[in-house]
Design a binder for these strands. Sequence first.
RNA 1: GCCUUGGUGGUGGAACUGGUAGACACGCAGGACUUAAAAUCCUGUCUUCAGCAACGGAGGUGCGGGUUCGAUUCCCGCCUGAGGCACCA
Length: 997
Amino acid sequence: MEYNFRKIESEWQKKWKDTNAYNVSNDFSKPKYYVLDMFPYPSGAGLHVGHPLGYIASDIYSRYKRLKGFNVLHPMGFDSFGLPAEQYSIETGQHPAETTKNNIATFKSQLDKIGFCYDWNREVQTSDPNYYKWTQKIFLELFNSYFCNSCKQTKPISELIKKYETKGSSKFSAEAWNSFSEAEKSEWLMKRRLAFSSYGEVNWCEALGTVLANDEVVNGVSERGGHPVVKKKMRQWYLRITAYADRLLQGLETVDFSESMKEMQRNWIGRSEGAEIDFIVEVGEDETTVTKTDLGNGFILEDISITSTQADTWLKVYTTRPDTVFGVDFMVIAPEHDIIEEITTDGQKQAVEDYITYVKSRSDRERQAEKNISGVFTGAYAVNPFNGVRIPVWISEYVLAGYGTGAIMGVPCGDERDFKFAKHFNIPVTNIIGEHFNGTEANPTKEATLENSGFLNGLLMKDAIAVANNKIEEMGIGKRKVNYKMRDAGFSRQRYWGEPFPIVWENGIPKPLSETELPLELPYVEKYGPGPEGEGPLANITEWINTPEGRRETSTMPGYAGSSWYFLRYMDPHNAEQFVNRELSDYWNQVDLYIGGTEHAVGHLLYSRMWTKVLFDLGYISFEEPFKKLLNQGMIQGSSRFIHRITLRADITSLFDDTKDTPVMSSNANVLVSKSIFDKIKEDKELLKQILEKHLSEFGIKDFEKIKVVEGQPSIFHVDVNFVDGQELDIDAFKKWRNGEYSKATFILEDGSIYNSNSTSKYICSSETEKMSKSKYNTVNPNELCDQYGADTFRMYEMFLGPVDQSKPWDTKGIEGVHRFLKKLWRLFFDETKGKVWNEEAPKAAELKILHRTIRKIEEDTERFSFNTAVSAFMISVNDLADAKCNKRAILEPLLILLVPYAPHIAEELWHALGNETLIIDAPYPLYESKYTVESSKEYPVSINGKVRTNINIALDAEEAEVKQIVLANETVQKWLEGKAPNKFIFVKNRMINIVP
RNA sequence: GCCUUGGUGGUGGAACUGGUAGACACGCAGGACUUAAAAUCCUGUCUUCAGCAACGGAGGUGCGGGUUCGAUUCCCGCCUGAGGCACCA
């Protein structure tokens, strides 16, 4: 009986499916464990070997936990709304619902082949109305909620309305509120809602015909497709994620994410502590003397009297370094700043206008690509409130309007950009840090002692920050302030294939649909072209957008809407009354293990964390962070193979010289050269000429004298990796590639010989690691590997490649080794000729040791997600058992259970071959006995001062070995040791005794 | 530039809290079985020195130092790969 994996795997997959073996019940009596994969976007390309890496890891862990007695939720679904399906529809005319359906079917069949234990009864698809009904419902919750700034919590907007009605706010009284029109009320409330509509600058992508969120724009172009993106003012929906910035930051302390992932999120949120400071700006031409009282705001200019034109206006700047306030040499404001018109002097007016025109002409992309130093002086001066120094106010594009106050104080001795700016415009630099500043380079240190800094003199900069802040607040000219880089997230897309907003606009006021009207289904459309005035395709369907109440919102929700809460729906996927039942969400609770790529660090992972916090505050769920532990699988890169080619082009026009009108005739010959001799052959004109002549003679052309070789063009191209074994090209297979495009080519092998049917040398390809992609011919399809070696081999090999969280290039070569291991395991049970070889003999101690050592190792490795070493441990054990000729059931049976997470099919098959009736996937995980996992007596090397001196036999009490108790059994060594008077024994890892005198 | 994370044979990678570096696998070389192939099995495989032999000597985990009886592991300073952020004041 041989290992027939094809039969075994398809039979067990069918059996598991037929018996609903993977259905998960809500059995509250068992401890739960929730393992989740980031659900895929079902693209048309299908899976390549990179995709299942994380799925295999999560499957192993789920199965392991199940064997350990947990009730494991391990679902799968599809993030099926999104741009690519719609782009594809525009190109092909096929409805996105149709292509999505097909793609999902392909994905599922591919996933099933690998033998995953998903409970498909819990599948969710974000584009299913039964699902997006609840996405819309949660949107309404967001719309009907606000963030209470004092209690830092989400609250129903109705509470805010009540407050306005009875107490008013800092902006208006209760009476004023009650007299507001509906539109005015709506507008005020809009400033607080968590999902709100507002005019703002958005990232508009003309090619895609939609706006994009900040994280969907990379280097000024769209993440998908790489189309240019411009800023545009439009009415949009937003998510008030900024309100949760601090909680998102604090929450990171409570979850188990990798340091780099946390760092990326912290970076994106970009919290910084600093101060806002008001500076007086002098405007106008009248020379007057400013007295203390003129400055207002209660601050006192100490003993400084300044001559000023007029204290006309205030400029608010944001700085994280108020300690450097005596080093301010200029102010810079963003070109979009409102104050510009007010403060620009007549003399500078033209220059300022020219500069602003110039800035507007530059796209974001240009601004990022070439960081020119540019700017213009406004003519106005600010006054440093601490020393009365007049500071010129400049405009420059390096200051961003959207961050802080859109204005900064320039401290060139401490800030690199400010220094460059000062140098460029010849602004004198004040040094406040003495020798720490060398005059040629800014020094952003916080460790220097301040000089030339009035009341801050002599203080260390990092200590001076608080002192300066206190002073600023005391003087009433500013206050401490925390800023964030993160912006509110754009939440609408001018597209068709997304969730419609449950909103109707009545007289310019957005009215939410009631919950009974959900789902608001997407209408069917024929065309996906954009609507008028930048609206989405839905705007074209007049019968849909116009309702008796008003006009429907025509944009749809972005891709991340559905994925922000899907982990909740798996808990209760068929609930028609609620998005999730509270009892069930209390039970299943947080996702214990979430596996996916790093690419969602600042998108999906932040949004879903925010939604969870909102739903927690509103009392729908009992946990505030959705994902307890996040494991990022590494990317599997493609390993591309290249062929070196010399294309010989022969001009054979001359052969037809009897007719004058003959066009240029040429004949191409491909010479494909093995990697290392390519450079040599390239220069070998004589050889190339011979090859060309041989090539032409096959077409009956013999008159070589008349032919000139036009060129021998060297080039390198991608070859399909499936034709290459390691580096060696399978020439015969390759010749059939692309309908035999290279069937007539000449192959020059590594030793310089020309390939023929009995060549001994090889054709060697060059290689490079690149992203896996169809166009590079470096994709490997998991289906093919499953067909060739089986799903069990494939699963174990993907794990064997290396740590899951590490990126690595794919190389099919080593898969044989894993396959051999499974065959070797099989042979412990069955012999090809003899049939059954396993027996019921009692195990020996040495064999029990192998077993228990393995149980312990596999368990430890699986727990710490070290799946690659676990696979190695299996190999070692099977090697040991084969060497010991151990075919005993008592040893083999527990091993099979250990194997279930890694290779479920073969484990199940052999389990039943041993006569078991129940499914092995539900068997209890074996426990190891420590008396078998510790060597009880052995030769150990003994070292003195780290030098290995001798081996001694040491008798260990098995139980005591763990607590490092040893008994020296060798008399001579003991005597010798006594003579040396050792005072310290270090017994390490059952391996070595170190004696320290 | 900043942040995060890596650097170990021909290759992928082991070595978990400092304890015999290179497990396991691929590849390669040699051998057994076979008419032959496939399959399977065995031996060798970090470098170097010495040798009839070995559980022999020496060196060795990017580079240079340090702590320690002992360092791939800890500390300091460099070099370098990958990923992320990048006018965020």
